[in-house]
Nucleic acid binder design. Sequence first.
DNA 1: CTTGACATAGAACGTATGTTCATGGTATAA
DNA 2: TTATACCATGAACATACGTTCTATGTCAAG
Lengths: 217, 217
Amino acid sequence: MDLTARQRRMLEFIQRHVRETGYPPTIREIGQEVGISSTSVVNYNLNVLQEKGYIQRTRETSRGLRVVAPRAGAAWHPENEEYLVPIAGVIAAGEPLRLPETDFSITDYETIALTRDILAPEPDLFALKVKGESMIDALVNDGDIVILRRQSNAENGDMVAAWLIDEGETTLKRFYWERETNRVRLQPANPTMQPIFVHPANIEIKGKVVAVIRQVQ
Amino acid sequence: MDLTARQRRMLEFIQRHVRETGYPPTIREIGQEVGISSTSVVNYNLNVLQEKGYIQRTRETSRGLRVVAPRAGAAWHPENEEYLVPIAGVIAAGEPLRLPETDFSITDYETIALTRDILAPEPDLFALKVKGESMIDALVNDGDIVILRRQSNAENGDMVAAWLIDEGETTLKRFYWERETNRVRLQPANPTMQPIFVHPANIEIKGKVVAVIRQVQ
DNA sequence: CTTGACATAGAACGTATGTTCATGGTATAA
DNA sequence: TTATACCATGAACATACGTTCTATGTCAAG
């Protein structure tokens, strides 16, 4: 499912052209940029890009192109600065955090649009809606939306969404591995609250929190 | 510098078309949408729109259109979903909240771009950066960005930014006026914390909190 | 070697689409 | 009234642009 160098250049040029002019390039413009003299070759490669899911085409329509989600996670709207993050589900203290095994694409989920001012776009972003008031110690309340980067490990100080296996609990805390005692300290964001300590084998990290959005009332 | 109803519909259709398909419409597509049978009329009105600064055109280019900002200082660019909110300053417990007397424009301040998914755009929105950990009872921490609507009154249940005159303190709390005792209860968002009670004359409401954005780490 | 899948080139074709022109209606001001 | 600016119509035209067809080259599998 990989792209050839040519196809990658074509894809990047299409995105750049849309960003700079406001409309997609023609077959001939793409050919000129990438160094293809034949329109049929460009057309052929555009069809390949479409089959691989990178673009959508509209038949017999000039500039009938659009770049769609190139891969799972965050996806750009080429025409503007904002981008989409899939809302993968709900996070609640008592429930396991069930995420799709494979990469999930924005086409399968509700999404929330973010801007670069809020968070730099990157692959593997997803969002969760908070249910219940159990995350208040992380300064996160019912209804808040947390944006996470999918990863299964963490560095000290990261705010992570983790599943505590023995307790059967999902939690949002700052992660600190204490080497000397080989235990993990999970520190609430609220400095007035006490940390909890768990064994490294008892924790399953689901992702790193990179932003929180609260819509008041 | 005003637009006719037709021109406004054309502009809106162009924006919608770009948003939905990824490329601008043709002259004929615009005509069909707006109810103009003649391509020259559409062309004529497109030129008017261009002269008035609402769009840019590229000659002899199919779909060579782009919607641009209708005028400098406008709060949002019609071609994308995002819009700008001025960051008016800093909010901290110990400091008075000094806001400009007159309406302030985004040209005079740093801004943060938001999307409609986060908050519906409206006039009189502004943002404040939180300094210090004194607002933790409102589930707002150092570095968070709160989005407010400028208003000097509040309804019961609103989360407001208020200045407590006697105490010389700024605070973020939910506002409840208790008619029987004629006092105002300011309720922390964190349900484990206790409310405070103030006399109505002792409170100066600066705005209503409509969203909170946290960039973690 | 032959076969077939894949990538490329060039040219011819049809149509989608912007441009232009001749014409006319409706206002408002002189 | 006449003049003028503005807004609209429909048709003809030129070309920008997607589609298709034939031909060629490469490479791995049989």
